[in-house]
Each structure stands twice: as structure tokens, then as C-alpha cells.
Design a protein around this nucleic acid. Structure first.
Lengths: 147, 147
DNA sequence: TTGCATGCAAAGTTTTTGCATGCAG
DNA sequence: CTGCATGCAAAAACTTTGCATGCAA
């Protein structure tokens, strides 16, 4: 997705946004598709995917993910935090001890039995910072695919 | 994965575990496959997937994900936290204001430009608590698939 | 008009599974 | 021995993309 792209507010895009704002169930792309299809029976799944991508790129919705599309695994079973670079998507461990007390913020607020938490910082890594504005996410994207 | 399952420490499983503990790059399943293949050229990708699943189920490694396998989307663009039920995997918003100061914990510790953070609580939801030990994750799994 | 967006379908990726055989306990 | 685990290959699940056409600005 180019950074300087100009987007249009099409009917489909508007409906996707509206439906997504109606619910708090954090649906998957397919779930959004099902919801939207009730209003726009002819919409395609591809359009839904494309729009979810664009809308979250614009900050109008959130994409919930840790460290990119694929699942990732961590040999360190001890609880610890991560930082993810918003540009290159690389994930690193954070040299900070987990704050065990963080769950206390919830006590009394919610009827869950809280077992733990997971914290991910979002930022820009030193390398990407250095590369500056000329490089965008796609550069690294290709970079990673070449490996 | 049944809760009372008895697991064996096979050669493949041990190597997967060892290789994963060696690195801090949070590899994908495919990445693990590549690493392990150097030592066990005949191992299959399926075995890697199965073992990563089992090992993380036993708490010997971590699976990094938010709210399950698929990507999920949130119409609420305002930053907010989530709770995920460890049994049924359902994701809910948390009625707690984001702690903006949380990023300060990192200041000076790391050379990233920190933009924000993402916090997910892990716990057991009221419904699953009520259902108790007789029901395991698979019950809800099926439940969700029927919808 | 212009060129971003859409529908459709095909292709690409990632993950799961069935089955016969292998091997840890 | 017993039955969980493996390799292989096929299938399933999820996501992206090419292309001709549609439509917002």
C-alpha cells in the first residue's frame, strides 16, 4: 500500500466500516464478509480483504495481530515482552522484567479469572529509523521474502 | 489436544525444542522447519506443525498470537486492551483506560522509537469458568465452527 | 474523464489431516 | 507390546492477485 495513495469512499468500503463498528466481536475477514453480505449480497471476499487492509492502514480500524500474518513461535517460555517494528515487522525481545502487577488494573472490573498478560510495544527499530522516510514497509517485505 | 494426553519425547520433538531455544528471532513454523531440517533432513513440515502445537500446549514454548490463528479486525480504532479466554479463545474488550505511561518502562533500555503498545490479558471467561473442567477447548472450538 | 475500486476466479500461502509405518516407554 | 509420533501427500483454510469493467471525485 503506497503511502501517498488517495482513497475513495466507496459504498462497499463504507458498509464494511459501518458493520465493523457495530460489533465488538473482533471478527475475522470472513466474519466481516458474512456480515457485510447481508447488505451487499454481491460483494466479494477479495474486496473485503482489500478494504480491511486499507482501512487499517489508514488507522480507521485495527488489525489484531502479533508480529505479522504468520504465527510465530518463541523458544523462551518465560513470560517476556516484545517490540515490533511498525516498518519492517520484525519482532524482538524487550529487556524489561514483566510487570506482574499489571493484571491488578483489571481486578473488580471484569468477571474473568486473569492468568496473565501479553504486552507488545510498537515502534520503529534503529535500522528503519536510520533508513528514514525513503524506505517503506515494502522494502523490508521484499527483503524478508528473498531470504 | 486432549488435556490428559501422554506425550513422548521423540528425537524430532527434542530437536525442534533445542533449535527453537537457540534463537531469539521468533521464527514462523516454516522457519523452524528450515532450522531443524539442517539436523534432521527427513523431518516433515507436518511434524513441525504438530510439535509446535504440542510444545506450546505444554507451556514449553510460546505461540505468539492474538486471539487465535486468523487475523481479526476491530472497528474500534481507539487504542484499547483485550482479554482472551484461554479455553474458548474468544476475545473481548477490557473496560480499562490504556495506560499511556506504560511505554516509559522502556525508555533508555532500547533504541527503538516507541509509538505505542498493545496489551492482551489472558484468562478464563465467566462462561468457561462455569463449565468447569469437563469442557475443554475443543468444545467451544466446535461451537464456533457451527456458527 | 481519470484512475482507484470492484467482482470474479485463479493462484499463492499457510496449516491441518489421513494413513501406513516407526519407535518410545 | 501399545499407542503416540512420524513421513508423505493430499486437502483444507486463509489471503492475495490479475484482469476487465464500474464508479467516485
Amino acid at each position: 500500500m503506497a503511502l501517498s495513495q488517495k482513497y475513495r469512499m466507496t459504498h462497499q468500503r463504507r458498509v464494511i466500516l459501518e458493520e465493523l463498528k457495530k460489533v465488538s466481536s473482533h471478527p475475522t475477514a470472513d466474519g466481516v464478509y458474512e456480515m457485510v453480505r447481508l447488505r451487499l449480497p454481491r460483494i466479494s471476499l477479495g474486496t473485503v480483504y482489500r478494504n480491511l487492509e486499507i482501512l487499517s492502514g489508514c488507522g480507521m480500524i485495527h488489525k489484531l495481530e502479533m508480529g505479522g500474518t504468520q504465527r510465530r513461535f518463541d523458544g523462551n517460555a518465560k513470560n517476556h515482552y516484545h517490540v515490533r517494528c511498525i516498518r519492517c515487522d520484525r519482532l524482538k525481545d524487550v529487556p524489561v522484567e514483566p510487570i506482574t502487577a499489571i493484571g491488578d488494573a483489571l481486578s473488580g472490573n471484569i468477571d474473568y479469572e486473569i492468568i496473565g498478560h501479553r504486552l507488545e510495544f510498537i515502534g520503529i527499530c534503529p535500522q528503519c529509523k536510520k533508513e528514514g522516510q525513503n524506505f517503506n514497509k515494502n522494502v523490508h517485505e521484499m527483503d524478508r521474502k528473498e531470504k
